[in-house]
Nucleic acid binder design. Structure first.
Lengths: 228, 228
DNA sequence: GATATCGAGTCATCAGATGAGTTGGCTGCG
DNA sequence: CGCAGCCAACTCATCTGATGACTCGATATC
């Protein structure tokens, strides 16, 4: 086991053991080095890992703190790696999205306030009227995000967000806005809204899952590499 | 933006841009430092982050390589942070488990070979006969893992595994093996197996989701801190 | 009492040195 | 020629020391 892993586990245990609660400050680097018996370089590497992942928070000039450990925040850190998955691996994530977004749509159907339904409907109008790829993509995000938020579990919203964001790097809408892809996508969104408006969770689940499945299919027909 | 983040993004872009494909080797540290215009310390911090997360692989004496970028592997890295979530945050993850394990059970009901059903049934027998907490926990893991594997999506299996592992640190079975918790758990497992054996996906989903929900409830009544 | 300044404490970053593992080629023997 | 063993170059691992930058509370000043 490398020295850095020793340091990493040491830091993690200080949190998991309850020695340091969310928001509390770690001892200074020098003290930690002595305690864990590692050099500053190794300690800092471990600290960076946990900092990058959102588990701890390093404040320059002030100290190192345990983060709030909010699940939604921690999960957001996953995108650091998920964003690097190649297309073929990405497709395996779609089963998760299908199930999770289906569930979120059902919750939204049960809980969404009337204002949200109006908002979703308005977003559909905008998407249908739009022919700018970037704008449509942004609206699409907002649409799905709103449904997740209405579902009421920020952690689930965060996880779906991570998986959705990876897909954004691929452009499934080609330049022709009249393409069947866009039309089908618009219809999918409309079906989800209608199910939610009818307060029909089962229908909302089916509509959302089906929508994700179609996206999955389009992506699977796309072999060109991503851009960034 | 810190220098380390510069390095991190530089490395990530080398992968996401397709410059380096899975399995390929990065230039030596010195070259990377020059290219990204960062010091060796900062570069190494960035490398460690990606290495710890399973995106790249550092082989002492040989070089640094892009990993296979298998989604299941990458997702396994999530446990590094998920294992640190406090109990209250952990409960938010149960909605995900409920939905995902319900789906996996449905898939298993549709696809599981006869041998697996026998195996699940045997595991139930063992669990019911066992009164050792540690052994029961291991059997429980094996039971749920087997269902996920049968469902056929390693990525989903990996994700469920990450979320399940976090729960393992809490002991919901108290020392009394005749406690209602154990009996209810045993019945839950049996119900899942029976639904899978009947090739009834909907029933399997309900049984699995209900089983997870019960675990969630038990955990929610448990406020004492974890041990490790 | 409000504000400006200062200094101790802390992290950020770099450079250099030494140690350790891997790999491929070279050598010499059979 | 084939192979085993050795060796040197290359690469990462880790530590140390130095300097810079930021934060924040204490102190001095008005």
């Amino acid at each position: 086991m490398t020295v850095m892993v020793t340091a990493l586990n040491g830091l993690r245990q200080m949190i998991s053991s309850g020695e340091l609660r969310p928001g509390q400050r770690f001892p200074p680097e020098a003290d930690l080095c002595a305690r864990l018996d590692v050099s500053r370089s190794s300690l800092r590497e471990a600290v960076r890992v946990l900092d990058t992942l959102g588990v701890i928070e390093v404040r320059h000039g002030s100290g190192t703190y345990v983060s709030r450990l909010d699940p939604a925040d921690v999960i957001r850190g996953f995108s650091l790696t998920v964003d690097l998955l190649p297309l073929d691996g990405l497709l395996q994530l779609f089963e998760i999205r299908r199930v999770l977004e289906g569930n979120a749509a059902a919750q939204a159907a049960a809980r969404a306030p009337e204002e949200l339904i109006d908002r979703l409907s308005a977003l559909c109008d905008e998407m249908e009227a739009s022919d700018d790829v970037a704008a449509m993509s942004a609206l699409d995000d907002e649409f799905h995000e709103a449904i997740c938020v209405a579902a009421g579990n920020p952690t689930v919203t965060s996880l779906i967000g991570v998986f959705r964001s990876r897909g954004r790097h691929y452009k499934i809408f080609d330049s022709d806005p009249s393409a069947p892809v866009k039309r089908t996508s618009d219809e999918g969104h409309r079906a989800i809204v209608e199910a939610i408006a009818r307060r029909d969770p089962a229908a909302a689940t089916a509509a959302a899952a089906s929508h994700v499945a179609r996206t999955e299919f389009w992506l699977s027909t796309l072999q060109p590499a991503p851009d960034n």
